[in-house]
């Protein structure tokens, strides 16, 4: 159950998308999201969808795993969809029942909103599925490095992110183990009212925190032993550099954005 969470999961591969510079992918995601919010018509949405499906196909990420990652989103999607369907005023009424009125405009709007969220999340998944978390943090660090001038701890932030990503699976596994151990001592995690449920979490959270602090302490010592002393004078095994692939990607991204903007200017 807990193990099924696919947060920040990386699928190693060697596709066109895998080989792109992480900075390119990050920037492309920004462009893609911007385009999603500008897009208003069937044509532009269709274009974006074709682009997205193309990317998934090129990346060779099994669509199943994207669908599985979407599961926790179902509630939000349904909520957004329903809200938009009911709350949008419109002229072409399809169903009218008591105070509920479903219009053509509402259904279309709801559909677009759901599509927008779906495509946004899928795009983000595509980034995390095809980019190792290390490359991702390296990319972020590099993109944000101009902010160092403002004394923003960019290196520290990316190091923190890297360690967090490293330890999430470990801590999830640990939570599972502690839950089993407390259940074996008769802890009841399923039944009871809200207050009781919150109370039942104590025997899980305390050991988890204690263990997380112990791990943090040991990790800090181990890092010191490996000569970690902050970002200063640090080199990287993998240097980031843009290649022809990235140029192609930027070109495609630019075309996509331009097309969506043009379409929306012409009201399409």
């Amino acid at each position: 159950m807990l193990k099924d969470i696919t947060l920040g999961q990386y699928f190693p591969g060697n596709s066109f998308i895998h080989r792109l510079d992480p900075r390119t992918k990050l920037l492309m995601l920004v462009v893609y999201i911007a385009a999603l919010f500008i897009a208003k018509s069937w044509i532009s949405y269709g274009m974006m969808l074709v682009f997205l499906i193309g990317c998934i196909a090129i990346s060779r990420i099994p669509p199943k795993s994207i669908v599985r990652g979407m599961k926790p989103m179902v509630v939000i999607l349904v909520f957004t969809g329903v809200l938009n369907v009911f709350m949008t005023a419109g002229e072409t009424v399809w169903v009218e029942f008591w105070i509920i009125k479903i219009t053509k405009e509402g259904v279309i709007r709801g559909f677009f909103m759901v599509m927008r969220i779906l495509m946004l999340v899928t795009g983000t998944f595509l980034l995390t599925y095809t980019t190792s978390p290390i490359a991702l943090t390296d990319g972020l660090e590099s993109l944000l490095s101009p902010l160092k001038v403002l004394h923003l701890p960019v290196h520290e932030l990316s190091m923190m992110m890297c360690i967090a990503l490293r330890f999430i699976p470990t801590l999830i596994e640990e939570t599972d183990k502690i839950m089993s151990a407390q259940k074996a001592r008769g802890a009841d995690l399923e039944n009871g009212n809200l207050m009781e449920k919150v109370k039942a979490l104590v025997p899980i959270l305390i050991p988890l925190f204690v263990s997380a602090f112990r791990r943090a302490d040991e990790l800090a010592t181990a890092m010191e032993c490996r000569c970690y002393h902050g970002g200063e004078g640090r080199t990287k095994m993998k240097l980031l550099h843009y290649t022809l692939l990235d140029m192609v990607a930027f070109f495609v991204g630019a075309v996509l954005l331009a097309a969506v903007i043009t379409l929306s200017v012409f009201g399409l």
């Binding site: 640990e174 183990k177 502690i178 089993s180 151990a181 407390q182 259940k183 074996a184 001592r185 008769g186 104590v202 025997p203 305390i206 050991p207 204690v210 263990s211």
Partner: peptide, 20 residues
Amino acid sequence: TRQARFRVGLVFQYPEYQLF
């Protein structure tokens, strides 16, 4: 099932990490 939890006691590996 619940009774079984008490009648069959299970001590996990490194059980000291469950103290709270």
